[in-house]
Every structure is written in structure tokens, then in C-alpha cells.
Amino acid sequence: MRIPAALRGDFITYVAGYLLALVLTGAAFAVVDFHLAVPATGFALVLGLGFLQIIVHMRCFLHISLQRSARSDLMLVLFSALIIALMVGGTLVILFNLRMRMM
């Protein structure tokens, strides 16, 4: 049976995304389970691997890409990421500053 190229392409994207995600997840769990680093570094590694996996999800499952047709979605995601960084970053800085000054 001849599988059309578009179908093959789509299927490979999803499979690749799934496998990459599994590897990144496994690596993150391994860092914790096998105590591969001190907690601070370990957490940084886990966050980094998580961030990479989020990009894999966006690219392979949610079809965000640099193509023109997905441009408005990409802009939306980037702008939202900026707002999230401001809100979450600001909150953490402010509240940790308050905690420190309360001690």
C-alpha cells in the first residue's frame, strides 16, 4: 500500500515528538531517581529538560513553527511567554524579597 507523503510526514512528526518527549522525560526522572547532581543543579537540569520538552510539544504536537501560515500562532505564544515571564518572574522576585525582609 502506498502511503502518501503528507500522511507519512505527519506521522513521523508525531512519532518523533513522542519519542523525544519520552527521552527528555526519562532524563529528567533519571536525574532525580539516580541522584545525578546536587538538588540545586538537579532542579536546574530538570527545568532545562522541561523547557526543551515544551518546545518539542509545541513544534510536533501543536504545529507551531516559523512558517508563514503559523506565524500568528507563534507571535501569540511568544507574547504570552513574555507576559508569563513578567508576571511570574515579578511575583517571585517581589515575594522572595518580602520574605527575606521579614526574616
Partner: peptide, 25 residues
């Protein structure tokens, strides 16, 4: 589909920041 994938994306953040962080102690 968008919703479902988005939920898995949030779960990546949850298991990283909540579970693995908690298990790292």
C-alpha cells in the same frame, strides 16, 4: 486536540516544578 496537547504541556511543567522538585528535596 489543542486543549489536550496543551494539558500535557502544563503537565510537563507540573512534574518538573512540583513532583521532581519535591522528590529532589
Amino acid at each position: 486536540g489543542l486543549f489536550w496537547h496543551f494539558l500535557d504541556l502544563v503537565w510537563v511543567a507540573i512534574f518538573s516544578v512540583v513532583y521532581l522538585r519535591g522528590l529532589l528535596g
